[in-house]
Amino acid sequence: MNLLLSDEQQMIADAIGDVLLQEYPLDRLHGGSATMAPNQWQQIAELGWLGLGLDDGVGGVGYGLAEEMLLCRASQRHLLSPSLLAAILGAHVAAVNAPEAVAGIVAGETTVALAVPRKPVSLLEDLLDVELLLIDPENAEYVLLWDTEAAVMLSASQLKQVAVAGVDNSIGLSVASGSVAPFVRATRGEADIYARALVLLAAMETGLAEGVRDMAVDYAKVREQFGQAIGAFQAIKHACADMACRVEAADCQLRMAVVSQSSGETDLLVQAAAARLLAGEAARENATRNIQVHGAMGYTAECNAHWFLKRARLLEQVSAPPRHLQRHVLGLPVGRFESVG
């Protein structure tokens, strides 16, 4: 038993962190966007990021969920587009029943967007009657959604799309609808996308919670009022300590979920759902507290604090809502036709 990263995993995490620090500073969001340009997709594809946990036999790098977790966690410290998750999961879905599509996704040439259903849909039907919100849909060729039973990719061109303004204004949002046959489908028996997504979303939320913890702590050390750094006041210090505790709990549980998957533990769903519940809460609560620690500055568009809160709110809507996660950890059934993709 050992929940620490191996030396190789630590090297991977460090390498990912270095690239993100260099290429994706938060300040790029001012007057810019988190939507990635084609050359940026190709750059991270060349680093192997999009096929990190995919078997090398189907065109991946051949690592596993642990390395995907490290990538997803680091990605949200820099608020990378959530389409990164769509590409990672999309490649797994394609590998099952559309192997010809894997190469394009892993090479960063074919982009995939996440979708949030606006009305229930059973993903096992031949023809899907969908009404969706597409997250960061610009240039996306495929749209990915999943529930407990299956994951599907739809061709974006077959959906009627209308761009709309979104709360997370670092990326685009559109309303899409149509009645379409999936481009590819993987059932739960073919690939457990549902549990994998829970772990990776938990990783993204944990990374976000870490990012805002550090932002709040850094500010509390330099901002002075009443003649001293505000971090010396217990009201602020304790808020920061609570942020650190939320991160620690989410991070440890995230590691437990990852090792449950790799060791084939039967309680993967329980471990993954627990990780996601804690990570989601950590992301939302830490992002909220961070704004408060920053005072009036935290309320401005100029300060980066708001981006994290908005992204936390966006991630919350992707896949299972908390009330499903709570039932998973208690071993209680979730209503059958409730779509969670």
Binding site: M1, N2, L3, L4, E248, A249, A250, D251, C252, Q253, R255, M256, V270, Q271, A273, A274, A275, L277, L278, E281, P322, R323, L325, Q326, R327, H328, V329, L330, L332
Partner: peptide, 24 residues
């Protein structure tokens, strides 16, 4: 159930936290 589920998640994490401390 929401409260109990959140509680169960926290209790589940306690084991993970102790495991990580022991690993360290």
């Amino acid at each position: 159930i929401a409260r109990l589920g959140n509680l169960k998640a926290e209790v589940t994490a306690l084991r993970a936290m102790s495991y990580k401390t022991i690993s360290t």
